[in-house]
Design a binder for these strands. Structure first.
Length: 284
DNA sequence: AAACTTTCCAACCGCCAACCC
DNA sequence: GGGGTTGGCGGTTGGAAAGTT
């Protein structure tokens, strides 16, 4: 199917937003929910592409956006979540209220990715963590544990894919999936930790709640809050962040804690969490 | 102080999937 | 069910700011 441009390119302004443009956009969105972003620029009196307006609002002007440096807790969450879900920035952002996917992506690309590169340069052979532990910096520990999680995640994904294929032929029921995972765990190699975690009760709880959050039908008209609220998008993890329940966060943290425990077992006591002092002194 | 390099991040781009008619 | 439209997402870029020589 043919793809239409997001806006008429002729005469549409690009580049940095001026305070006047910001004010026009904020005023409009606060007075009316944006609704149709394509029509918004015209209605708001902006000479901008609708897409640009949406981006400006979601990444910068939204009132619930939290600015400033990332906290150690946020840093830790990003590392863990990236190891689990990869470059799903919106998904990661959904777990960090007030942070946008763009911000997290930038943070990853500027700080964390750089660390991984440096670590790779210092340690090209990818030796065992325990061997390099002595004398290594806490930041390299962080880089290494991220790399380990990433590797484990990819392997688990591959296994999950294979399992799902075989499951199709053996008609594994949902209720037996956890026992299947447990059985597999008994003789599984260490890299199956993600598979085990994902199929564990904690992982299942987290997974189901995540799906429920995503699948929740957008609140359309009726009962619109007084505060300016964007029409909930179809698949907006970032917006869903504000709706994440305490219970879900507890499950989520339980999931990560379990993951931390599991990983510790497999790497000779290698800590998932490097000492915060040394680690964050390099970032901020 | 000037020139150059690096870092940071706002903004853009193109793809894709959900939605709507 | 199919095609067009819209919004969301991840990758990338460009320029300002900060740092270094």
């Amino acid at each position: 199917m043919g793809r239409t441009p997001c806006c008429e390119s002729k005469g549409v302004k690009k580049g940095p937003w001026t305070p006047e443009e910001d004010k026009l956009l904020v005023d409009y969105v606060q007075a009316n929910a944006p609704g149709n972003w394509r029509m918004l620029p015209k209605l708001a009196g902006l000479n901008r592409c609708g897409k640009s307006c949406r981006l400006r609002w979601t990444n910068y002007l939204r009132p619930d956006i939290k600015r400033g440096p990332f906290t150690p807790e946020e840093h830790k969450s990003i590392l863990q979540l990236h190891a689990i879900v990869g470059n799903k920035w919106s998904m990661i952002a959904a777990q960090l209220p007030g942070r946008t996917d763009n911000e997290i992506k930038n943070y990853w690309n500027t700080n964390l990715k750089k660390q991984l590169r440096q670590q790779a340069a210092l340690n090209p052979a990818g030796d065992h963590p325990g061997l390099a532990l002595a004398g290594s910096s806490s930041s390299s520990l962080a880089a290494r544990h991220t790399a380990q999680w990433e590797t484990a995640r990819l392997e688990a994904e591959a296994r999950l894919s294979m399992l799902s294929t075989s499951a199709a032929t053996t008609s594994v029921t949902a209720s037996s999936s956890s026992s299947t995972a447990e059985h597999g765990a008994a003789d599984a190699p260490s890299s199956d930790v993600f598979l085990r975690l994902w199929n564990s009760e904690v992982g299942d709880t987290f997974r189901r709640k995540s799906v429920r959050e995503e699948a929740a039908p957008p609140q359309k008209e009726g009962g619109a809050p007084a505060a300016p609220v964007l029409r909930p998008p179809r698949d907006d993890y970032s917006s869903a962040a504000s709706n994440v329940t305490t219970a879900m966060m507890a499950d989520y943290h339980a999931f990560l804690d379990l993951a931390a425990e599991e990983l510790g077992l497999f790497h000779g006591g290698f800590s998932l969490y490097p000492p915060a002092d040394g680690l964050f002194s390099e970032f901020h």
